[in-house]
Simulated assay, not measured.
Amino acid sequence: MKAIEIFEPGKIGIKERPIPDLKENEVLVKVKAAGICGSDVHIYHGKNVFATYPRVAGHEFAGEIVKIGSQVTGLMAGDRVVVDPVISCGRCYPCRIGRHNVCRNLNVLGVHRDGGYQEYVAVAAANTYKLPGNISWEVAALVEPYTIAAQVIDRGRLTAEDTVLICGAGPIGLILLQAVKMAGAKVAIMDIIETRLDKAGKMGADLVIHAERRDLVQEIMTFTDQNGASLILEATGNANVLETCIHRIASAAGRVVVLGFSTEPPVKIPQVDIMSRELEIIGTRLNNHKFPQVTEWFVKGLVEPEQVISHTFKFHEVQTAFELIDTNPAEVCKIVLRF
Rank of each mutant, 00 (worst) to 15 (best):
S88F: 14
S88P: 02
S88A: 14
S88E: 03
C89I: 05
C89H: 03
G90A: 09
R91E: 15
R91P: 01
R91Y: 14
R91L: 15
R91I: 15
R91G: 06
R91T: 14
C92F: 12
C92T: 12
C92A: 12
C92D: 09
Y93P: 00
Y93T: 02
Y93F: 14
Y93V: 04
P94F: 00
P94V: 11
P94N: 04
P94H: 02
C95P: 01
C95T: 03
C95I: 04
C95H: 02
C95E: 02
R96E: 11
R96F: 04
R96G: 07
I97F: 07
I97H: 08
G98V: 06
G98K: 03
R99N: 08
R99F: 00
R99C: 00
H100F: 12
H100Q: 15
N101E: 13
N101D: 11
N101F: 08
N101S: 13
N101C: 01
V102Y: 07
V102S: 02
V102M: 04
V102Q: 01
C103G: 09
C103Q: 12
C103S: 12
R104T: 11
N105F: 08
N105A: 10
L106H: 01
L106M: 08
L106D: 01
N107M: 14
N107D: 08
N107F: 09
N107V: 14
N107T: 08
V108F: 00
V108E: 11
V108D: 03
V108Y: 01
V108A: 07
V108G: 06
L109H: 05
L109C: 02
L109P: 04
L109D: 01
G110M: 04
G110F: 06
G110V: 03
G110I: 07
V111A: 01
V111K: 01
H112F: 11
H112T: 07
H112I: 05
H112C: 06
H112D: 12
R113T: 15
D114G: 10
G115E: 10
G115D: 08
G115I: 05
G115P: 10
G116Q: 14
G116N: 14
G116D: 08
G116E: 12
Y117P: 05
Y117D: 12
Q118D: 08
Q118I: 11
Q118V: 13
Q118T: 15
